[in-house]
Simulated assay, not measured.
Amino acid sequence: MRLLVVEDDPELGPIIIAGLRAAGFAVDHATALAEADEKVSVNSYDCVIADRGLPDGDALVLIKAWRAAGRTVPVLVLTALGAVGDRVSGFEHGADDYLVKPFAMAELVVRARALGRRDQPPRLPELTVADLTLDVPSHRVRRAGVLLTFTAKEFAVLEVLMARAGQAVTRGELLEHCWDEMADPSSNVVDVVIRQLRRKLGPPDLIESLRGVGYRIRGSA
């Protein structure tokens, strides 16, 4: 999943981003409403996490404008404004969730993941291809019953491939879903992760390379 964090606090912003990336999200960052609006207009996000008190105004104004323009990206407001009236105003302006600072990172992760999946087709909690099983909630992967260890990025790429087993997945699609805007489209980061997956998964190889397109995970060994 790809998230946008809109937070201008120079200390809290990096902490939020690091925590979300550690949980396996691809995360972009904006420090003002205008910057956030521009990023949402050119990128596809599964969820936006926005502080209210930003240098160029209240995030609720931007959320309301997005809803009026038909933008449906889920938004979680993360703010110190926690009175009942503040929370009610947040939902009235189009926010999908409202979390008050200080907060627990584990709760933010769970809420962001739930919002990010809201507009997606229902997904099975467990994906299976041949003798390979991926447990989405627990982030565990087993092949022939053996538990394997993957980084958050490797797990994210494997989840996308397994969710579309038998279908071609382009490098661009993998970059869009599993990396943030700092990833260079011309780099070989996707190929590097695929090589790591193949090495850890072992034989027989389930991942096919599609010349000039991307990759596909076979439906059978």
Rank of each mutant, 00 (worst) to 15 (best):
Q167D: 10
I207D: 02
L4K: 13
D191P: 04
V141F: 08
L175N: 00
Y215N: 00
L78N: 06
R199H: 12
F25Q: 12
L124W: 07
E181S: 14
F91P: 06
R211T: 09
H177I: 01
I17H: 10
T133G: 00
A32N: 13
S187P: 02
G85Y: 12
A163D: 12
A152N: 11
D56P: 03
S220L: 09
A34W: 12
T133D: 02
S209Q: 13
T79V: 02
A50N: 07
A95D: 09
G172C: 01
G70T: 07
D86Q: 05
D58V: 00
V77C: 01
L76N: 01
A68Y: 05
P137R: 10
A114H: 06
G19N: 14
A221I: 01
L124P: 02
T151Y: 08
N43S: 11
L148Y: 02
A152D: 12
A83I: 01
L3M: 11
P204E: 14
G90C: 12
H29A: 15
A163P: 00
D46G: 13
T79S: 12
Q167N: 06
E92R: 13
A30S: 11
V129W: 00
E181Y: 02
V84Q: 15
E159N: 11
P55A: 13
R218A: 10
L76V: 01
R216I: 00
I49T: 05
R52N: 06
Q167C: 01
R123K: 14
R123L: 10
T170L: 06
G24Y: 14
E159G: 04
R142L: 13
T149E: 15
P121H: 07
A152V: 05
R143Q: 11
L115H: 09
I194K: 06
A95V: 03
A32P: 03
A106H: 08
T72D: 11
M182R: 15
E92T: 04
D9E: 13
V88S: 10
V75Q: 08
L78A: 03
R67K: 04
A144N: 03
R164F: 10
V42Q: 15
G24H: 14
